[in-house]
Write a protein that binds this DNA or RNA. Sequence first.
DNA 1: CGCTATTTTCGAACATGTTCAATAATTATT
DNA 2: AATAATTATTGAACATGTTCGAAAATAGCG
Lengths: 217, 217
Amino acid sequence: MAKSDDTRAKITETAIESFRERGYDQTTIRLIADEAGISVGNAYYYFPTKNHLVQELYLRVQGDHLERVHAAFGSSTDITKRLEIALLCGLDATGPYHDSAPGFLAAAIAPTSAVSPFGPDAAEPRAMAIQVFQEVVDGSTNTIPADLKRQLPELLWLAYMGLTLFWVYDNSEGQTKSRALARGASKLFGTVLPLARLPFARGPLNQLLDLIRTAQS
Amino acid sequence: MAKSDDTRAKITETAIESFRERGYDQTTIRLIADEAGISVGNAYYYFPTKNHLVQELYLRVQGDHLERVHAAFGSSTDITKRLEIALLCGLDATGPYHDSAPGFLAAAIAPTSAVSPFGPDAAEPRAMAIQVFQEVVDGSTNTIPADLKRQLPELLWLAYMGLTLFWVYDNSEGQTKSRALARGASKLFGTVLPLARLPFARGPLNQLLDLIRTAQS
DNA sequence: CGCTATTTTCGAACATGTTCAATAATTATT
DNA sequence: AATAATTATTGAACATGTTCGAAAATAGCG
């Protein structure tokens, strides 16, 4: 099986490198096959789809995100700060791919696609992504209503997906706007979260949580 | 120019019909050309891209949305009710295309695509879409802070885009979940909106509006 | 080892969006 | 009306993701 693993690994590495350097569109299967020294058909023996190769890249990026977050959390225990760190580290991790982000996004968006963040094929990278926000919540010392706290990691992840969507369309120099949005959103979250404990906020909050639960089911 | 217009119209009609019946992927340029009785190259003389044909479909659907909304508003002057109507009518208008929604979405999502809802090529359908929510606001008798009121149509449109995104992934029978989400979100909006007038809500609200303004600029 | 079954590899073929040089049809000009 | 210029149309060609049947390499087994 060593030989087989070799081939697979060579394809993966070649593909990821090419995605990094040339972007999604410019990376053709024929190119990958050439550079990996194999045939086109052989690549398809290991990866049923070009998007399955993209998935390998996602795994790398998610791993990078998690690493960056760990390095950056430091001793921060305020959930607002931790959220900001998580969002900014996410932007840092995806930064190098901004140029060809549209291509990747288009590949990811189709629900039937291998890389749809909601589909079964992407369970692993998705779990890693949610893990980041799980740690944002778990490492915080803020007092948060239990039911909200339970849903928070997934909610924050969803917000992060929204930020990523914005980032794809963000043409500001160095994606400054996205970073500003990340900071501003974290801050806003920080000012709104304490309100969740006020009695009159329970109504709308429960409504919101119910709504999201229904949508997820 | 009559002949030219004829050709263009025949292409448009054939394409829209095919999109309706066969969906995005199954509708190939060769098929359109065949059914329209012209050559492939000629289709490209009028429409630089397959997605430009999708745009024609969007225009229809947007027109349909607006019509439905007008018919359904009736004498409702409560913004909550009007919002619910607008959202549900949107789902009604797009309903027939749910099966091939992923294909359309993938085509629409790329910022460089002709059909990106944020790009310049889609200015017309986007204006129509925002128009719907402009009417939601304008026809309401609720008292709303002026600055919020100004941004509201665009905000609601953005929320509608989110709903549409959810709808694409919604596999419940008849997209029941999306409808429930539309109703629930409207209701929630109805309970939260009055809070915007309370003094202590000004802080977070202004923060939010600022944030969005920054993001848009 | 020799033979069979399985795994791996190959490259041609296909479908489809798109491009382009050539040709036909139409319009404008003299 | 004749000619030049512009517009419309064609079909072949190209790039690329994907499929597939055949061939080669490898593993399992007597």
